[in-house]
Amino acid sequence: MAGVDAGRFETDTKSSSKPGHAHAVYWSKRYQEKAFEPFDWYLKWEHLKELLSSWLSSESVVLIAGCGTSLVAEQMLSEGLASKITCVDQCAELIASLREKYKDKAAMEFEVADASNLPQDWSDRFDLVLDKALLDTVVAGRQGWASAEGVLQSLMATLKSSGRYVCVSHARPAQRLPLLSAVVQDKRREISCHQVARPLDPPPDPKAKTGKAAKGAPDPSSMQAAATDQKDNVYHIYCCECQAEAPEPPPQPAEETTPPEE
C-alpha cells in the first residue's frame, strides 16, 4: 500500500537482537515471507508520474536504488520514459526473483549491490537516480547520518553531469536538507523540494455495521479532504540537479568614434 506510515522508519538506537529496517537481514526475511509480492513504499507510479515525466525521456538511463518489489520501473518503462533501467537491492534472493520475473524485458536489469559501494564503472552513467525510502531506512540505522552520507556520495557518483538524484522521503526539509546539502555542496548541484499529498485509504463506511450512518457521523469525503489538506500529510520529493550556469553576457558593441575633422 502506498502511503504507508513512515513511523515504521524510526531511528534504530535501542540495542536489540532483532534486525531493523536498516538491516539486509530484515528485508531478506520480509521479501521471502511475502513471496516477493509487489509493494510500493510511500508513493506509487501514478503519484510520481507527473513530476518525474518532466525529467525523463525515451532515451533516459535510470537507476532505481533499493528497488524492493516496487512496480515503478516496469511502469516507467511501459510509459516510454526510459531506454534502460537498472534496479539494485542488497537482497540476493529478491534480485534472483526479479530477474526471473522480468527475463523477457531486455531494457530492465537487476543487480545485487550495496548502495554505499556501487561499481566504479557506473560513474557518469545515469540520467536519473530514484531513491524511494532508501535514504530514510539508512538514516534510521545506528550509524544513521554517516551511513547516509556514504550512500549519497555513491549514488551521486553514478550521475551524468546533467543527471538528477530524486529522493522520496517522509522527512521534512528541516530534517533532510542539511544531509543532502552536506554531500552536494561541492558538486555544483542545487536542491529543490516538492510535496505530494499522501494517498489515503478510503475511510471506513459508517453504514457498514448498522445499515445507516451513525447520528452526527462526519461525511467520509470531508474526512479524507481534511486529512489531505494537512500540511504534514505529504511526502517530500527532493531533487538534486546540476546548477544552471549563468549565461554569458552578450558582446558589447564597439564604441563608435567620431572621425577627426579635416
Rank of each mutant, 00 (worst) to 15 (best):
A73Q: 11
I95V: 15
K44W: 02
S70M: 06
K44E: 13
L43Y: 13
H47D: 14
L48S: 11
T69N: 14
I85C: 02
Y42E: 00
Q75F: 12
L81T: 02
L51V: 01
T86I: 15
L52Q: 03
L48D: 07
S54W: 10
W55F: 13
G66S: 05
L63M: 11
C91I: 12
L77Y: 13
A92M: 06
R99K: 15
S57N: 14
L71D: 13
E79M: 08
V88K: 00
E93P: 04
L51S: 03
K49A: 13
V61F: 10
M76W: 12
V62P: 00
A82D: 08
W45P: 07
A65C: 12
E50F: 12
A96W: 05
G68M: 02
G80M: 10
I95Q: 09
I85S: 00
S97Y: 08
L56G: 03
S53H: 13
Y42Q: 05
S83L: 09
V88S: 06
H47G: 02
A65L: 04
Q90N: 15
I64T: 02
S54E: 15
S70Q: 05
W45I: 03
W55Q: 06
I64R: 00
L52P: 04
C87H: 00
E59T: 15
K44N: 08
E46G: 07
Q90P: 00
Q75T: 10
V72A: 13
K84T: 05
L98S: 00
I95P: 06
S83W: 04
K84C: 09
L43W: 11
V62N: 05
S70R: 01
S54I: 11
A65H: 02
V88R: 01
Y42T: 00
K49Y: 09
S70G: 08
L52I: 07
S57A: 10
L71T: 15
L94K: 01
L81H: 07
K44Q: 11
L43I: 14
A73N: 12
C91D: 14
K84V: 06
C87M: 13
V88A: 00
I85H: 03
W55A: 05
S57D: 15
A82Q: 04
K44T: 02
E59I: 03
H47N: 14
G66Q: 04
K49Q: 14
G80D: 11
S97Q: 12
H47M: 08
W41E: 06
H47P: 03
K49D: 06
Y42H: 08
M76V: 12
E74M: 10
A65Q: 03
S57W: 11
L52F: 07
W41I: 07
A96P: 00
L48M: 15
W41Y: 10
S60I: 08
S60A: 13
L56F: 03
A82N: 06
L81W: 06
W55R: 08
